[in-house]
Design a protein around this nucleic acid. Structure first.
Lengths: 152, 152
DNA sequence: TTGAAAGTATACTAGTACTATGGACTTTAT
DNA sequence: ATAAAGTCCATAGTACTAGTATACTTTCAA
């Protein structure tokens, strides 16, 4: 049930891009180097990931000197589910319960397949969290925890 | 977030072994061939999986003619979580939120890492379902759906 | 107008996990 | 004794993962 490194790094990068944007309302621009340094990610690998995210319409970029990446929409409007699906594919643990990429799983009777019923619950539980958590929810929670711990 | 084929097949096989046991109270014994035919699984692959499950103490077997596999405990006492963990490892989507196999994930500050907080929720949601659903819950639900649809 | 900074686009690779398959061996009932 | 059934171990193809490498384009500023 693991998420891939691509997924993990992509989510981290998006959160990093959302974080300063919380204070200043303007979209925050960051460079690959900056993010890779801060999150300890191979810059070349991160590059691929950000590009994928850009092609999916979640990021915009500015080329040339002083360029970088920034969120395509406000942090409130981007959910973890959107990011995850771009990088790691469907959320469902088994294809026959996927909303986005349904495929039959080969059980004798899908309607009454017990595994399918249980895994459907799991899918819904995961999707509920990922699709209802925006980047701004994440950064808010982060800073709440920081305050509670008296850090920074 | 996909489960592996090993996990899927193992869960299917365990459910199949639990199903008839609901009616007759005695532990139901089934042969590899029987399960593989019914669930459309390569018998050799299934063999490996059942062996793993046996070594983990979830199944017992009887050798020789008229042998087969049967549940080591009653269907009420075996959860989907137990089976899943044997075949697919920890439930957590990211190592740093795993209860069974914690490892640091390399984020600058684990306490305040937003991804970690969100993935912790996901882990708990998944574990809640898998650890609180027994094989007997699954078979009961199956037959409930069957009745509702007027099948068999 | 040139060059350095930054993003874009592919191609490649080493390692690992997944999904099996095959064959030799052991146990058991008849 | 023999055949059915389970056990154990080795290995092979494929796909995926994580990461590198290389060449190219855009932009800005000196």
């Amino acid at each position: 049930m693991r998420i891939s490194k691509r997924g993990e790094y992509g989510l981290r990068a998006m959160i990093a891009l959302a974080e300063p944007a919380e204070k200043s309302d303007a979209p925050q621009m960051m460079q690959i180097k900056e993010i890779s340094l801060r999150e300890q990610i191979s810059p070349k690998f991160l590059e691929q990931i950000l590009l994928t995210l850009k092609n999916a319409g979640l990021l915009h970029s500015k080329m040339g000197v002083g360029g970088g990446y920034y969120l395509a929409r406000s942090a409130k409007e981007i959910t973890l589910g959107q990011i995850f699906r771009v990088l790691d594919g469907p959320v469902a643990p088994i294809k026959c319960v996927s909303q986005m990429a349904y495929e039959p799983c080969g059980c004798p009777d899908e309607e009454t397949c017990g595994l399918r019923l249980a895994m459907g619950d799991v899918r819904n539980a995961i999707a509920n969290i990922l699709d209802n958590t925006s980047l701004s929810d994440v950064t808010k929670r982060q800073s709440a925890v920081r305050k509670k711990l008296g850090i920074k």
